[in-house]
Design a protein around this nucleic acid. Structure first.
Lengths: 223, 223
DNA sequence: CAGTGGTCTAGACCACCAA
DNA sequence: TGGTGGTCTAGACCACTGA
């Protein structure tokens, strides 16, 4: 299918696939959300142009549901640490309770980034240590531990590298670093995982596509 | 409604409001996406807990469809500039063509941030200069020029402040700065606006809520 | 005006969950 | 097992677009 070409209309698609309009509309809505097609009221549905993605300096990884495969993780440490105020709040823990922390390094296309995962001790016990070398923690939760995940909140900020992070990322201290924090809950809303990922500032971009719509639905906010 | 309390089921709501299940489901899907309710297959629909939002250091502004009101913009400059390679590509311009650039400062809760907007000259001519002092460019496009907007792509990165940005943000050179780039198109996919916003690194977080779902739908990726 | 996507009705069946 | 949300059928009407 060529960019800009028009798809058959919904009724035609429904007949083609022998279903009614509703599943067709759901599928098209999905494709629309994924940016593969563009729907125009009164005109039709079109294959999306190969949007000139803002040219990215360099790929360094993926955060979210999908996961870059084939990249190895270098295991740094596993520790049991007291939950600080914020984390105790997120994990709904009593003050003084502890969490398990995993620290890992990962290299994608030559650029290293550092990942720190915090999870409840009971959950951490179920993690197979060898899985940590080839999977993201989200993958482990979903595919290995079979935990259906729900919403995930991320926050992105620019910080200055401290000595430890600078060492891991192989940059100078005080250089800008992109820090992505991730608060993950299961389908019932129970806290499962908190992670921090540190990326080299000059080699990473976080891309967001905001919803179409005429006023509502901004999914992201800077605070 | 108290957090965690259960809503009537869909059929009941449909009868209450005298509509069928479909609009009820659409409304609930919207509330779900906005994080106000949580839907659980086989159990019911519940008012969302007041999720302990990861405590934000400080609010500095909002990017997206919605807009912080009542904050003034300090107009810095309006210029006609040649479109660089990337921008020419986004705006589908011939090499050598020009764009209009507006530079403004904005202060929210004591923290300044700097906004640079690029737009086609023809569009820029339609912008009322006095509107620039109290509205975001998105607001101007939507509310003043009545341009229905479509998708918006944002990229977030951590950069080091150069002398100019450092001056505007009142920080030291080389300190980390959050740069948010925004590629805005109208409903037909035509390029309308490109903007850069610079925020103090230590006072700004970009928040993203990723979709629920069991595998698909990651809306954001780090590249 | 005809054709399109957006929304709706009034049902139906399935998948999941808790008791 | 009964109740829930998830999905579907087979229609209908409306709102927007372009000729």
């Amino acid at each position: 299918m060529k960019p800009g070409s028009k798809l058959p209309n919904e009724l035609a698609l429904a007949k083609m696939y022998g279903v009614s309009r509703i599943p067709i509309r759901q599928a098209l809505a999905q494709l629309d959300q994924d940016g593969l097609i563009r729907r125009e009221h009164g005109r039709g549905t079109f294959i999306a142009k190969d949007f000139q993605r803002p040219p990215v300096v360099k790929l360094t990884g993926i955060t979210g549901w999908e996961v870059a495969l084939g990249t190895k993780h270098h295991f740094l440490a596993e520790e049991t640490v007291p939950a600080s105020g914020q984390l105790a709040e997120f994990f709904e823990l009593a003050p003084g309770a502890t969490l398990t922390r995993f620290r890992r390094l990962r290299v994608v296309e030559g650029a290293p980034f550092c990942i720190i995962n915090y999870m409840p001790n009971a959950l951490a016990k179920r993690v197979n240590r060898t899985d940590l070398q080839a999977n993201t923690m989200l993958d482990i939760l979903v595919k290995k531990l079979r935990i259906p995940l729900g919403k995930m909140q991320q926050s992105i900020q620019a910080i200055a590298a401290d000595t430890e992070i600078a060492g891991h990322l192989d940059i100078e201290v005080m250089r800008p670093v992109l820090l992505i924090e991730n608060y993950t809950r299961d389908r019932r809303g129970r806290p499962m995982l908190y992670s921090q990922s540190f990326y080299r500032g000059n080699q990473s971009k976080y891309l967001v596509e905001l919803q179409n719509g005429s006023g509502r639905k901004g999914m992201a906010a800077v605070r």
